[in-house]
Write a protein that binds this DNA or RNA. Structure first.
Lengths: 216, 216
DNA sequence: TCAAAAGTGTTCTATCTACACCCATGT
DNA sequence: ACATGGGTGTAGATAGAACACTTTTGA
């Protein structure tokens, strides 16, 4: 990475990459094989070169780790002092991805892996707080936006959607009321198709009416 | 200001300082007497030295411009490319202040001054968008927090509170419903005192039950 | 007694919550 | 026929919206 002009602090972009896998909310972490904070898990990130857009830098981190592009990405918070030593700044984003589209890098050094957000280890650079902040933000936005589209595939059943919501807000949602609310919000619509998943009635499939962020 | 270690971009903190004056929402701007962006109005800010807390740096800008300390301050957004030339980053905060506590610097070079948020001029560094973002955020938070305490003095009338809310959300609020809602939220309480302001019935005085941020 | 702002309740409507049974399918 | 998850409606409670007159004061 080319050194930047100026004489300011080191700036990094880091990304809280969230996905719902088997009904559990997960975050993507990498393992630090060298100092600082050796042997701790950390959020993926990279140094910002000062040339490209900040958001483009975050997108690049996301794509590098997951192979995913064009998903939901939003700025979260900017933190000083990544570590205690040199002056530094971390601009944190969060991203929502659909796990089946993800191909994790397979690298000895970093071992990118999904970790359930419940029961995280102590992270490098005190990044646990950023994850909490991201989850809280997503939970709040589920109520008045359609950002769940970032977490689900093109087509999905009501069960998928329901599980996704419950994984994030960690409270049970009444199935009938949930269905009514989603439909009355108008963020999803039936595709007409169905999906059979076992020895029982097939589920209708839905899609998001828009895959751009929409506020209600 | 001491140069920082590292070879990263220049980092600045800037602050959107908001106050309600005579029923109108105002933002504090400084006038740029030299390049870049000479002769345009801009948000006040300063270079971050990489040593102190980011938030402390923003607090220092706020205090330098207004003499006010210990008011409501919150991180807003981080933007790349303050200008088109050298790599740079601006970490924006917004602050809520009570105008009677403010003593603006009197400097020929910068001329800090309040500007009504309606009818702003084109600002340096395309900072108009940051102001819009700050106003939108405050407006949203009025609904579920007590942050209005940052905009009002220790004691105030319902009229003061009502005008403050209307100045930010730019929509009329029914007086009776507004009063009920504020009281049922429990964020304010009567002091017992009253204030006479003219040839009419005196108004009861209220205070915020807490002057720390409270979420409902 | 008049002008000017302060203070106060009720009705209606929309939204949210709680809750239990039948349906379609594969084995 | 049975096991499994999919799909549906109603009644009660709560919160929000609309709306107009009386009170207190100084001039």
């Amino acid at each position: 990475m080319a050194p930047t002009a100026g004489s300011g602090p080191v700036v990094a972009t880091i990304v809280v990459i969230l996905a719902v896998r088997e009904g559990q909310l997960h975050v993507l972490l990498v393992h630090r094989s060298g100092p600082p904070e050796q042997d701790l898990w950390a959020l993926p990130g990279g140094r910002w070169d000062g040339v490209e857009d900040l958001e483009a830098a975050a997108t690049r981190v996301l794509e590098h780790e997951t192979g995913v592009t064009d998903l939901y990405l939003e700025q979260l918070f900017t933190k000083d002092s990544l570590d205690g030593s040199a002056p530094s700044l971390a601009v944190a984003y969060f991203a929502l991805v659909e796990p089946s589209t993800v191909r994790l890098r397979q690298e000895e050094a970093w071992r990118p892996a999904w970790h359930p957000v419940e029961a995280l280890p102590e992270l490098a650079f005190h990044n646990n707080a950023l994850i909490d902040q991201a989850v809280a933000r997503v939970g709040a936005k589920l109520e008045y936006t359609n950002i769940a589209y970032g977490l689900l595939p093109e087509q999905f059943t009501f069960r998928d959607l329901h599980e996704t919501y419950e994984a994030i807000i960690r409270k049970p949602l009444d199935r009938r009321n949930f269905r009514k609310r989603m439909l009355s919000m108008g963020i999803i619509e039936p595709t007409g198709g169905t999906r059979r998943e076992g020895a029982h009635r097939p589920a209708k499939l839905y899609r998001f009416t828009s895959r751009e962020p929409v506020f209600l």
